[in-house]
Simulated assay, not measured.
Amino acid sequence: MASRPVFIPDLDGQALVRTQTLDFRWFAGLSLSQKQKSVTALHQAAHAIPGINKVLEVSTKSTEPLGAALSAFNLCFAHSVLGHSLSVECAFQGSKVFVQGGPFTDIYAMSSREAKRDERLRVSGRLTGFDFANVQWPLEPQTAFYDWLYISALKHRADLADQLSEYSAFTDIEFSPQKSINCQAYSVALFVSLQQRNHLEQATESPGAFLRYLGSRPVISAHQDDLSQGRLF
């Protein structure tokens, strides 16, 4: 057995995303087929949640092309300040600032896999913040910078975003709240909530607007569940 969170856009309440952790059968092994069996088991468990119909796995392990395309490894965007396109993963990793170095902006030109494995991310000391396109982001609130990057990329991919209305919940089989903070499935759920509320443009007008919008609402981050609800500020 294993436990993983399911992220549910909240379209009416004060919270933007509901997070519910479920137990399900885990299929051991590193192969894609084993991961996808675990995804299927998690989604079967999610269907027991009232109001949950279609669930999308957001990762390279997804059985659906949309879910794989929405992986931070694959979701790319063009940035006017940087002058070139890059993946969400490269943008996130290359923007990290540590006590002993960073941001390592050459990571922006790497593949997503190379970016995540860059040795400097492990030997440069404590993470102190982020610096992307000359905008500095603090570590708190914890998922704000990652969510901003992801949502900023997705809002320019109408071909992907327009398909999300078919789904009522999102998962990432690789995400464990005990090991990680940021989660692409949570970011997708947050995007859907903002979009369905017609608040997407207002909330993403600028980094400051994004922080102010989220700061005014109770938010359950990717590594919290409904029993440990917190606030961004």
Rank of each mutant, 00 (worst) to 15 (best):
P138F: 04
A133V: 11
D12H: 14
S187G: 06
A78H: 14
A41Q: 13
F191Y: 10
F27Q: 03
T21G: 06
Y167M: 08
D147G: 05
V58N: 00
T171E: 01
L16V: 03
S80N: 15
Y150F: 08
L214P: 09
K54A: 13
S111Q: 09
I220V: 15
V219H: 14
E119Q: 06
D12K: 14
S180Q: 14
L22Y: 03
L82M: 12
S71A: 11
S3V: 14
H156D: 11
G208T: 05
I107N: 05
R212P: 05
A153K: 00
R217T: 13
V6E: 14
A222D: 10
G29Q: 14
G83K: 11
G101W: 04
I181T: 14
Q136N: 10
P50K: 06
A45Y: 03
E89G: 08
G102R: 00
H84Q: 13
F98P: 02
H223M: 07
Y146G: 05
G29N: 11
R4E: 15
F73W: 10
D172P: 13
P177D: 03
S87M: 06
L56W: 00
W137H: 07
F27N: 07
T40C: 03
I220C: 13
Q100R: 00
S206N: 08
W26Q: 15
N134S: 13
L164Q: 10
G51T: 08
C183F: 01
E205H: 02
L194S: 03
P141I: 09
L190I: 02
A169D: 09
D226M: 14
A15C: 12
G13V: 07
R25M: 04
S176A: 13
R122V: 08
Q224D: 11
C90H: 03
S206R: 00
I173T: 09
F130G: 08
M1L: 12
N53I: 08
I173R: 07
Q44I: 12
H223G: 00
D172H: 03
L149A: 08
T105C: 10
V39G: 00
L121K: 01
R117N: 12
F92I: 09
G208L: 00
F7N: 06
H223K: 13
A45C: 05
Q229W: 06
Q202G: 01
V39Y: 01
P177L: 01
L86R: 11
K37A: 15
I52Y: 11
Y108I: 01
S3R: 15
I52A: 13
I49D: 05
R157T: 04
V55W: 06
L56S: 00
E57V: 00
S62C: 05
F233D: 12
L86D: 06
H47M: 05
S38W: 06
A91M: 03
